[in-house]
Structure formats: structure tokens, C-alpha cells
Nucleic acid binder design. Structure first.
Lengths: 119, 119
DNA sequence: TTCCATAGTTACCAAAAAGTTAGAATTGCT
DNA sequence: AGCAATTCTAACTTTTTGGTAACTATGGAA
């Protein structure tokens, strides 16, 4: 997350990658998209992505909220309840993201199996 | 680049991100796509992406070749000449990638200016 | 003979990202 | 008093990524 002035002049790809190209962001967006109700609580997301630590999930959600892709709704209860959902901007990213997912599924053999078979 | 068995079971997003979500891969693909002839030499790419070091460019190209997104053609000359181009698989990724670029352009204000103005 | 160009590689170091573990905060329940 | 539930945060460590600068190979040209 550095050098924004340089990126301002550079390609939009750089902007996307540097902000959402981390290990978990796109996966979180996808989970929210797939959810029936459109919302998920912190622990629900965590269960869906159990290999993501609480810390990383929290960090990822904060980042997505900062960039206005995810909305965070806090209910003043004890124990706390926080619901996450996609914003309109977040929703607008989904077609592109799903397109990437489709590509990955179609080219699974070219790209993924290659690494697994190697062992 | 680890833990492929886990990823095999996981979401295709993970597969894409873990392989091409680095700082330079998508940018290289985009440059090859934009090229008139469809091919670019090492130094040509380097000039287009001058803030990418030789080492990183070399590494990135090697990775993209490994995953069959980029074709590497060596001409046995001195000084050496090596031409890079997109494979069919590489070309097939472009619509999704361009869709992401469009999204970034459309949501520039929501996402990018935010960081720049902050200073 | 020394230099040039091209396409890299290598060794070393710094920075960033991610993981682990522990614990904070709240309040009702037992 | 002690515990449970939920959503985090802090301190620390490890892993991964990226950057710099110097070096290699080749054969023709000056």
C-alpha cells in the first residue's frame, strides 16, 4: 500500500492488484456474494474460510470497508453482532470477478493440475 | 506457491490469485495484449514497465510461461533475441482481465482518489 | 583487445504480508 | 464469582516478495 502517486499515473490493473490482490479479499467478496441473505456475520465468514485467521479476516474486512466494497453494520448487543454485506460498488465488481472464476474453472487443467501432479 | 492440495479443494479464486495476483503478472499480460504485433522482446517490456526490475520481469515471465499463459520464442542470435507472446490460454484470460480494468476505470473515484487525496 | 548489446542470473538485503498466540471488552446466565 | 459468546486487537515470529547491484555469456565491431 505505498506509492499511490506513481500508481495514479500507472495502469488501472496496478490499482486493483495492489488493493484487492491479497490472499483473502476476493474470497471474502465471493462469499458475501454467494450468501442467500446477502449478509454474513464475522464468524460465519470465518467458518466458510477456516484457514484464514481471525486477524487476517478482520484486517481484510477493514480494508474492503475502507475501499467501500463492503458495508459493516454493528448491532449494539452483547455478545456483539456485526453483519457484513456488499455495497453497490462491491456488487458492481462481481461480474468481473465471476468472469475470472469461470476462466479458472475452464482452465483448471492447464493451470492447476499441473502443480498438483508434479508431486 | 504452497499448499496446492488445499487449494485444489478450495475456490478457483484462490488458484488465480495465488498464481497471477503478484505485482507484475497481469501487467505483463496486458502489455502483450496491447502490442500491435502480439509479441514483445524482453527489453521492450522492460521499457514499458520501467519500474519493474530485470529480475522481477524475468521471474514473472518465467512464471507465466510455466502456467502456459505466455509463449517464449528464442532466436539463436548474438546478441540474443527472445520474443514473448500470449498463448491461446493467455488470450482467453484477456476478456476477464479487461473487464477488471474497465471496472477499475469506472470506479476510480471510489477507490483510488480516496488514497491520493488523503495526503 | 576492448567494448557493445541482449537477456538474463546471482547474492544479498529490506520490506511487506501473513501466521500464532494471547487477551480485551461486554453482560447475562448459573 | 466464574464462564460463555462474539468480534476483534496487540505483540511477536515467520514467510514471502521485491529491490539493488554486480555479474555471466556470446560474437561481431572499432
Amino acid at each position: 500500500m505505498a506509492d499511490f502517486k506513481a500508481e495514479y499515473l500507472a495502469c488501472p490493473i496496478r490499482q486493483v492488484i495492489s488493493r484487492f490482490g491479497d490472499k483473502w479479499s476476493m474470497l471474502v467478496l465471493f462469499m458475501l456474494h454467494k450468501s442467500d441473505t446477502g449478509t454474513l456475520r464475522f464468524n460465519e465468514i470465518h467458518k466458510l474460510m477456516s484457514d484464514c485467521s481471525q486477524k487476517m479476516l478482520s484486517q481484510t474486512l477493514k480494508n474492503l470497508e475502507h475501499y467501500n466494497l463492503v458495508h459493516r453494520e454493528v448491532y449494539p448487543q452483547v455478545p456483539p453482532k456485526v453483519e457484513y454485506s456488499l455495497t453497490e460498488t462491491g456488487k458492481s465488481l462481481m461480474p468481473s470477478l465471476l468472469s475470472l472464476v469461470d476462466w479458472a474453472l475452464q482452465h483448471f487443467d492447464d493451470v492447476v493440475v499441473k502443480d498438483i501432479v508434479r508431486e
